[in-house]
């Protein structure tokens, strides 16, 4: 079962405070306000292409991370920054996931990062963790559940 896509108003109300704080930590208060508007305008543009309402928090934080990178690039031309996937692909890069998953137990954290940061299949994650596909799936979903609990 996937979650239905909420009306944008609901999505915005639910995530705006966290997005602003995230941007504030990365950019400082003044630049965060412009980045805030850019983040949610970009989310609005991509919103009709969403296929379900799962992981919307990770999705909007990914967009915010990309806005931060754009902002930093603009200010430091030629700076070495990693390429990120486009915002239509759902997977936050590892560096975006890392701060979000800090509080997880190591195995769950690894499973979540490999699944959602590197887009590995559970079979590959199982191998990477030296366990099984089923154990990897279980660790990732436990991690996601824990993240949800921490953020509500």
């Amino acid at each position: 079962m996937t979650a239905p896509i909420p009306a944008f108003e609901r999505f915005y109300e639910e995530h705006r405070t966290e997005v602003l704080r995230f941007l504030g930590r990365r950019l400082g208060h003044d630049r965060a306000e412009d980045a805030f508007q850019d983040t949610f305008l970009r989310a609005l543009r991509a919103y009709p292409r969403l296929e379900h309402g799962d992981h919307l928090r990770a999705w909007v934080l990914t967009i915010a991370s990309r806005i931060v990178l754009d902002d930093v690039r603009k200010r430091k031309p030629g700076g070495e920054l990693p390429e990120l996937p486009t915002e239509e692909s759902w997977h936050p890069a590892f560096e975006d996931l890392a701060p979000l998953t800090e509080g997880l137990p190591p195995k769950e954290r690894a499973a979540v990062v490999l699944r959602y940061g590197y887009d590995l299949g559970y079979d590959e994650i199982g191998v990477a963790l030296g366990s099984t596909e089923a154990a990897a799936r279980q660790a990732a979903s436990a991690g996601v559940r824990r993240l949800r609990k921490e953020t509500t």
Binding site: R16, R21, G24, E33, Q37, L41, L44, R45
Partner: peptide, 24 residues
Amino acid sequence: MTETVSLALDERFRAAAAAEGLLD
């Protein structure tokens, strides 16, 4: 840091969203 979205910032985004024709 307990920063919250100010009324001005909130209204600015809502106006921009409409001005850019992004709303159903």
